[in-house]
C-alpha cells in the first residue's frame, strides 16, 4: 500500500508541466553519468517504468487535474499536446546524447591527429608558410567541430531545459575537456608564432617574416555561431520527427523530415 509520502509525491508529480516532468526525470537519469550506464539500468525493468511510458502518464494526470469542468474534447486535445511535448523533450535529450556520442570518436581522433602534426610542425625548422597554413586550417577544423557542439548545446539549454544541459555529466565533462585541449593546441600555435616573431627570421628591413597569421579564438567562436545554431536546429527537428512518430502522426513526421532535408522542394 502506498504511504502518505508516496501519495503526496504522486500529487506533486501530477501537477507538473511537461518540461518540469522531463527535468525531474533528467535529474534522476543524470545520476548515472553516461547514457550507456543509464540504458544498462533498464535491464530487467518492466516497460511500464520506461520514461516514455511513465512521464506521458504523469502529464496526462496533470492535465486532467488542472482541467476540471472543461469539455472532454478540450481535455483530450490538451493531453495530447502535453504528451507530444514530453515525447519531444525526451527525444531531444536522446538525440543530443546519441549524436554527440556518434561523432565523438572521430572528433577525438581528429584532434589527436592535428596535435601530432602540430608537434611535428613546431619542431620543424624547415617548415614552409604553406605547411603553417595547412596546419592552421586543420587545427581550426578540429576545434570548430567541438566548439559547434558547445554552441548547439547552449542553444537548447535555456530554451527547452530551464538551464540544465541535456548531455549526461560524464560526456559533458569530456566535451569540456576536449574543447580545452583544442584551445590549447590553437594557443600553442599562436604562442609559437609569437616566439618566431621575437626570435625568428627577419627580412632586410628588420620586419618579421611571419609564416601564418595567429588564430583569433574569440573570432572563431563568433564565426561558428550560425553552424552551431543550425546543428541545434537540425537535432530539434529530428526530435520533433520522432515525437510525431511516437504520436502516430506519420504524415506530420514525414513533412517535418522533408522540410528539413529538402527545404527548397515545393
Amino acid at each position: 500500500m502506498a504511504s502518505d509520502i508516496d501519495r503526496r509525491l504522486d500529487k506533486v508529480a501530477a501537477a507538473l508541466s511537461p518540461q518540469q516532468a522531463v527535468l525531474l526525470w533528467l535529474q534522476e537519469a543524470h545520476q548515472y553519468g553516461t547514457v550507456k550506464a543509464y540504458f544498462a539500468s533498464f535491464n530487467e525493468v518492466p516497460f511500464e517504468r520506461y520514461p516514455l511510458v511513465v512521464i506521458p502518464g504523469q502529464v496526462r494526470e496533470a492535465v486532467r487535474a488542472a482541467m476540471t469542468k472543461v469539455k472532454p474534447d478540450a481535455i483530450s486535445r490538451a493531453e495530447r499536446n502535453a504528451v507530444r511535448e514530453v515525447a519531444f523533450l525526451l527525444h531531444l535529450v536522446h538525440e543530443f546524447n546519441m549524436r554527440l556520442w556518434g561523432d565523438w570518436r572521430a572528433m577525438c581522433l581528429q584532434l589527436a591527429l592535428v596535435t601530432m602534426e602540430m608537434k611535428d610542425l613546431l619542431q620543424d625548422e624547415a617548415a614552409t608558410p604553406a605547411d603553417y597554413a595547412e596546419a592552421r586550417e586543420r587545427a581550426i577544423d578540429a576545434a570548430a567541430e567541438l566548439l559547434q557542439w558547445e554552441i548547439a548545446i547552449d542553444q537548447v539549454v535555456g530554451r527547452y531545459f530551464g538551464g540544465t544541459s541535456p548531455i549526461f555529466p560524464t560526456q559533458a565533462h569530456m566535451l569540456a575537456e576536449m574543447v580545452g585541449h583544442a584551445e590549447f593546441v590553437l594557443t600553442t600555435f599562436n604562442e609559437h608564432l609569437e616566439w618566431l616573431a621575437t626570435y625568428g627570421a627577419k627580412n632586410q628591413r628588420g620586419k618579421v617574416i611571419g609564416p601564418a597569421s595567429p588564430i583569433d579564438l574569440a573570432g572563431l567562436r563568433r564565426e561558428l555561431l550560425p553552424a552551431g545554431v543550425d546543428l541545434a536546429r537540425h537535432i530539434v527537428v529530428m526530435a520533433k520527427v520522432e515525437a510525431s512518430r511516437f504520436m502516430g502522426e506519420t504524415q506530420e513526421a514525414l513533412g517535418l523530415l522533408r522540410a528539413r532535408l529538402w527545404p527548397d522542394a515545393s
Binding site: 572521430a106 581522433l109 581528429q110 589527436a112 601530432m116
Partner: peptide, 13 residues
C-alpha cells in the same frame, strides 16, 4: 571518418 582518421594516425606514427 573516425576509421580513416584512426588509420592516418597509425600510418603516420
Amino acid at each position: 571518418r573516425a576509421n580513416s582518421l584512426n588509420y592516418f594516425l597509425v600510418a603516420q606514427g
